[in-house]
C-alpha cells in the first residue's frame, strides 16, 4: 500500500522482500509486515506474459524498487546501449519508486557472465564508473542508487578504500547509495577488517535502502574463513547485530530481505521481514 506520508522518491522505512513469483498469492492476500517489493530488472524485460502481468498487479499495491543485475556499470567497455534502452523502457512504464544497480562488472566484449565481478578501486575505475552512472541517470531521467559488493579478494592496484570510493562516486554523479549489510560482513570477514569501521566510513546520509541476505561459509587455501554471498539462507545473527549498529547511526531506512536461491515458503521469508521490522522499531520510537 502506498503511504501518502512518503514522497514518491523514497521507499517507506519498512521491511521489503525480493519478489519471487511463488509468493504472489501470499503478497496479494496478506503481505503482513512487508511494505514494498524489489524486482530484478532483467526478469521483467520480456514483451509480455505472466511476469509482466503480475508486476502490473503488484505495482498497484506496493512501492516497487527496480534492482538491475546486468548493466555492468564497472565494465571497461561502453554500457550496452540496447540494455540501457530496455532499462529505460521498464522504468518508463513501471515508474518504480527507486532504481539501483551494483558496483561491479558482468559484461566484457559482448559476453555476459551472469555474476557481479569485482573492480580495482583506482582513479581509472572511478572515472569510468562515474561516466557510466552519469549516462544511466541521464537516460533514465532519475537518480539511481549504487550498491557495495561482496568481496572475496583484493586488487593490489587499488588506491581507494571501498567506502571512500563509493562516497566519491556519489559526490561526482549525485547518485544515492544502497548499503548491503550482509556484503559488508562478508567482505570484512574475507578481507580481515572491522565491519563497524566500514559502516563508520560509509556515507550513511546517502543511503536510501539497506539489503540483508544469507551467505555460505567456505575456507581459503590457508584455512581462513571465506564467506560467499549466496542469497540462499537466513540472515545470520552477526549480520542482524551489524544492522542494529548501522540503524543506530543512520536512523530508520527501508530494509530488503534478499532470498534468491532455494527460495523458502512465504512464512519463512516473512519471519525474516518481521525481524527487520523489529530492528526498525528499535530506532523509530
Amino acid at each position: 500500500m502506498f503511504d501518502a506520508q512518503h514522497s514518491p522518491d523514497h521507499l517507506p522505512n519498512r521491511p521489503g522482500v525480493g519478489y519471487k513469483p511463488q509468493h504472489y498469492t501470499s503478497l496479494i492476500e496478506n503481505p503482513g509486515t512487508v511494505g514494498w517489493l524489489e524486482i530484478h530488472a532483467e526478469n521483467y524485460m520480456g514483451d509480455g506474459g505472466r511476469p509482466i502481468a503480475q508486476l502490473r498487479q503488484l505495482s498497484e499495491r506496493f512501492p516497487i524498487s527496480v534492482h538491475g543485475v546486468g548493466l555492468s556499470i564497472g565494465g571497461e567497455g561502453a554500457l550496452d546501449a540496447d540494455h540501457l534502452a530496455r532499462l529505460k523502457h521498464l522504468v518508463d512504464w513501471l515508474n518504480p519508486t527507486v532504481f539501483s544497480e551494483h558496483l561491479a562488472w558482468s559484461t566484457h566484449e559482448g559476453a555476459f557472465l551472469n555474476d557481479l565481478l569485482p573492480l580495482p578501486y583506482t582513479q581509472d575505475t572511478l572515472n569510468r564508473v562515474a561516466d557510466h552512472i552519469d549516462l544511466l541517470q541521464e537516460t533514465l531521467g532519475r537518480q539511481m542508487m549504487l550498491e557495495n559488493p561482496s568481496s572475496y579478494l583484493a586488487f593490489d592496484e587499488s588506491t581507494w578504500s571501498e567506502p571512500d570510493f563509493l562516497r566519491e562516486v556519489s559526490n561526482r554523479t549525485g547518485c544515492g547509495l544502497l548499503l548491503d549489510v550482509n556484503n559488508v560482513f562478508v567482505s570484512a570477514t574475507n578481507l580481515n577488517y572491522d565491519p563497524k569501521q566500514y559502516i563508520a566510513d560509509y556515507p550513511l546520509e546517502k543511503v536510501g535502502e539497506i539489503h540483508l541476505g544469507g551467505h555460505d561459509e567456505d575456507e581459503d587455501d590457508h584455512g581462513k574463513p571465506l564467506l560467499i554471498d549466496s542469497h540462499g539462507a537466513p540472515v545470520v545473527d552477526p549480520v542482524w547485530a551489524l544492522l542494529d549498529h548501522t540503524l543506530s547511526l543512520s536512523g530508520p531506512r527501508p530494509i530488503l530481505i534478499e532470498w534468491d536461491t532455494d527460495v523458502p515458503e512465504w512464512t519463512v521469508l516473512h519471519a525474516e521481514a518481521l525481524r527487520a521490522d523489529k530492528a526498525l522499531s528499535k530506532v523509530m520510537s
Partner: peptide, 29 residues
Amino acid sequence: LGLSDAIGQPAGRRFDVYRNNVAVSLSEA
C-alpha cells in the same frame, strides 16, 4: 596475478569463487 587475500598472499581459490559462480549460474539457467 595482482589479486590477493587480506594479507597480500595470492588470491588462490578465492578467485575460484567467481569461476564457480559463473559456471553454476549459467548451467542452472
